[in-house]
Structures are given as C-alpha cells and as structure tokens.
Design a protein around this nucleic acid. Sequence first.
DNA 1: CTGAAAGCGCTTACAG
DNA 2: CTGAAAGCGCTTACAG
Lengths: 338, 338
Amino acid sequence: MAQKVKLSTIAETLGLSTATISLALRDSPLVAADTREKIKDQARALGYIYNRRAASLRTSRSGIIGVVVHDIMNPFYGEILKAIETELDRSRHTFILSNHYDSVDKQRMFIETLLQLGGDGVIMSPAIGTPPEDVLLAENNNMPAIFVARSMDGLDVPIYRGDDTYGISLATNHLIGLGHRSIAMIGGTDQTSTGRDRYQGYVNALRKAGIEVDPGLRIPGPRTKQGGFEAAVNFLSLPQKPTAAVCWNDLVAIGLMNGIARAGLIPGQDISVTGYDDLEEASIATPSLTTVWNGQAEVGRLAARALLDKLAGSHEPDGIHLIKPEMRIRQSTAPIRR
Amino acid sequence: MAQKVKLSTIAETLGLSTATISLALRDSPLVAADTREKIKDQARALGYIYNRRAASLRTSRSGIIGVVVHDIMNPFYGEILKAIETELDRSRHTFILSNHYDSVDKQRMFIETLLQLGGDGVIMSPAIGTPPEDVLLAENNNMPAIFVARSMDGLDVPIYRGDDTYGISLATNHLIGLGHRSIAMIGGTDQTSTGRDRYQGYVNALRKAGIEVDPGLRIPGPRTKQGGFEAAVNFLSLPQKPTAAVCWNDLVAIGLMNGIARAGLIPGQDISVTGYDDLEEASIATPSLTTVWNGQAEVGRLAARALLDKLAGSHEPDGIHLIKPEMRIRQSTAPIRR
DNA sequence: CTGAAAGCGCTTACAG
DNA sequence: CTGAAAGCGCTTACAG
C-alpha cells in the first residue's frame, strides 16, 4: 500500500491549507466554487479516504446508529429493519445491527460498544428483563433511544409498535363471527408487553361475545415456526377439541398449519387458524393465511424518522405511538363445521 | 449529562498519569496489580466510557468487521451470519452488516463507509457484476476481504462456499434413482458463480445417466419463496410434463410446493421436489423437504476464523475452500408413478 | 513500576 | 475567500 493520503496530503500537493480542503470536501460555500472542484478532483485522483474516526473525535458525532432486536433472522424484525435501513440510507447514516436473543448481557454489551464508537442513537426492541439502567446508560451519555415493537415501564422513551390488544381482538372476533366457540391461543409469553397485550385482547374478545375463557385453551411459549409445528401435537390432543386457533404470530400459525397437515387434517377446513403480522410469506402459505397486518414497515420507518428528527434537534413527542392493525382475511379460516 | 469522563479525569482524581491509566485498563503487566485494581474501580465509579475512536485513531485498528451479503433476511445468509456473529463475539469484534441487494453501488458505498470507519476486514458475498476494483479498494487500504457463498474471477481472495456442482448432482441423481426422467430445474441465475455451477451439476448428472438435456425444462430466475410459488404455474404447464423438479434452493422449493398444492396436486406424491441448503425450515415444511445440506454454519464459522487469523498475522492459504454437501432425504420426493 | 510528550487526522473558531 | 493553530481522547516509544 502506498503512503496514506490524508487532508494534509491534498493540501500540500495543491498548495492550500487543510482547513480549506476540509471545508471544500464538505461542500462549504466558504470555499470558492472552482477551488472546491479542484480539491475534489485531486482527492479523487489521490484515492483519498475520509477518516471518520478523526472527524468524529473532533465533532463528537459519528453518523452511527445502533439497532438491536431479538433476532434479525425473524422476518418480523427483518421487515422492520428493512424500513429502518431505507430511512437511514437516505440520510447517510451507518447502522450497526445486533441480536440480543433476549439476553440482557448481550444487549448491554452492544450498548457499551455503541457508546465506545460514539453512536448517535439507538433503536431497540428491549430484551426481556432489561433493567432501566441499561437504557439510561445510553440516554445519559447523549445517545437517545427509541423503542420498537416492545414497551418497557418506568421509562419515557418514545415507542413505536402495533396496537396488540386491538389487533388480536380483530382476529378473535373474526373467528367468533365464523361460528367458532372453542378457540385456542397458541404461543407468546407473558414476559413481554406484547405477549401480555395479545393475550388480554383475546380474553377481552371472548368475554365480550359471552364465551367463557378457558385457561386450558392457552398454549403459551411458541414464537417460531418450529415452535408452532411442535405445538400442533398438544393442540390436537386438547380435551376441549378446539375448532380454531389464534396464533401469536404468522410463524407460529404457519408452523401449526404444517403440524396439523402432518396429522392428516386440513388447516383452513378442519381447523381455522389465524396469524399475526402479515409477513410477506403469509399470502403464499398453503392455505394462505388469515392474519392481522401489524405495520412492520411503518414501525421501522417512523422510529427511524423520529430518531433522526431528534438528532436534528427537534423535540419529538415522547410516549407510545400505536400503529392501528388491520384484518387480512384469506383461506386459513372458514365457518365452523357443524 | 455530567462532565465527560476520560482517561485524564481518572488520572487526575488518582494522582497518576494517563499513560498508567491507559495501560492499567488494558490489563498491562507493566502496571502493579493493586494500582491496576484501584484504577479499574475508579473507572467504574466514575462511569468511564472508553473512546474507541480516539484509540483507533492512534492505533489504526478499530475492531470493526464488515459483512455484506445479498439480503440478510434470506435465511440462507441468516444462517451464515449467525455463525459469523458467534465467532466474532468470541474475539470481541464488532460487526457491521449490510445488504447489497445485488446493487454494486450500494456495495461500494458500504465498503467506503467501512474504510472511513477504519474497518479491519470485510466478509462479503459479492454483488452480481462487482468490479474487481471495488474489492481491491478494500485490500489496498489494508482491509482484507474474504468471500462467502459466491466466487469472483480475477481475484485471489479466499473464498468459503459449498461445492455446488457436486451438491446439485446429489439431488439430481437422487431423483434419477427414483425413476424420474423428466426433471425440471427451477430458479437461479447464470449471473452468479453459484448459479452457473448448479446448472452445470444438474446437466452433468443427467448426461451421465444418459438422459437428454432439454433446455426447455429450465425455468431460471426464482430465488425466493414468492418466486418459487409463482413459477409453479409455468412449471405445471410445461408441455414435457416433468415429474420432478430440482430447485435452486429451499425457498424456491417450498414456494413451488405451495404453488403445486394450490393447483390441487400433492407435492411429494404427484411431483417430487428437491431443495438446496437444508435451512432449518426444510424439515418442518409439509411435506418435509428432501434437500442438500450446504453447510451455512460451517461457511460462516470458517470465513470468520480465516479473517481473524489473517488479522492476527497468520498466513491463511488463499483460494477456494469447498464445503462438501450432503443429501437429506425426506418426504418431498418419491418413486415415479407409472 | 510510573510519567512527560508527541502524534493519530480531522474541524473549528479566529484572523486576515 | 484562505490560513495558522489548537484540540478531540487516546497510545506509544522513551526516560527515569
């Protein structure tokens, strides 16, 4: 490798000062237009690479934004990330991604690393059991946080997510409307706000329809396709013989449908199944999945915008921003067979 | 936020020099053990945050490793990434992720950003049409590259991937062994090394079995579930009435099976389908998918190790490192019906 | 075992 | 419109 090219290299070869070079490369109107062009050409010719660490050391702004969620391989988060990426790309921010797999330690290590790198802000879907201190660590060090998909009590961090209680009630009401009375709820956990909200929404809808809530019809836990697939055995052996299942999310629903099919029953005919999220995959599942649109792209886009606005100095309203879910009716649900 | 705590803050409160603090925090044996402890306690008490930009400006090592692939939401890459993450976590490197969506521009911008941040190295699955200069840009600026999953001609960058020609021949031979003679190949593109290799492997296997290769049986293009799903229509209307399909990957295979089922046929019985990759999902698809294990976790782990070794100064052998694929036989393939 | 001083490559008032 | 100089917060020879 040749000698490293820096601002001073360009300055020397052009007989100018580093100050002028620095300003010119950042398109400052303080530098005459033709000087600016000359400088840019020279920078290109020399293969100059801007050293962000040096700049950021001086300005204490890095252009780095951290994003940490449960698991980026989960398409639910994937769809959120894609929207965040699009929004951050537009403003030339770099984003650093991490999974926390609901490990508080892994999440804290990520926040610390981000602080060390001088991260400007962090978008997170907090790990189960996150202590408020870990979020305050970021905020107190001038790195604002925005939550997506999950709330946390005791912090007034802006949060963007779907209205889970309402959304799941849409799915439950849809099944009730089709004549189902014995409806199971598969998956999710009480350890997240989302989990509690969705179960509550399911319970509310049943009560409102005058259907007794049977705790035995709840199979908590599964959150993945694999989990839904394995839950099919338990589901099919429930003594109550439910005719329908409200699933925690699309992944669980698709897994459950696979499991039901494996047992020789036809999902969508013998058993009605609803998902949640409306992943891209939901419409091509077989049968195509009746589900609840949960606005992942909206959540990602709005959260990224809110963070960028905050960094730009505007006072974004804190508090909860709920996206209103919508029903998507497809083939996996049908009127009850009498 | 209180006044920022830096090395000199600790030094002053303790009556020591910044040099000693710096050494102590990095566990240098040059500092007496009890001084070291005292310093670490004080750092913790003051809430000191190590400034990596400053350190990296001085040492020109950042601890950052870039990873850029086609699409991190694709579980094939997801499984590679997970293995890379595990390996890099272990050595306390930070990794920055990006999709390139096969846009050469997006990929170049990522490489430039990484250089600006002082990235130590980059693991990439090069975008279609990547000019060698873009990779040399990294290498010439002291940022070594390692390829995963895709090769590129004209560069001697180490590459880790599966043996595609061999792997696809396993799938094709399996179908031939079941009595199939009219076997379609669905998906993939000639624009990647992987695409060319897999088509070649399919052709080789047919020839070796004395089956004439019919170019009309190839439906190139699809690489996703959606793509496979849509290809089902074309597949089912082929005049040759193929009884089996070798798919580009598991996603295409699962999509195709969904499409076949939607048309009222039973995949695995009426039509045999093979996938490629053996994603976690393959075994829970319905029917479970006969596929080729492609060693994603191995690819990721080995590539990360190779990069870390290179950064540590060891001379890693360049060239191609092929993982040997293995057949996984499940329910989606069956003897031909006469 | 500890300290004084230079320097990594930028940006930013301040002058002119 | 351009330049000289200080400083961001570390680490690293070099002394002692």
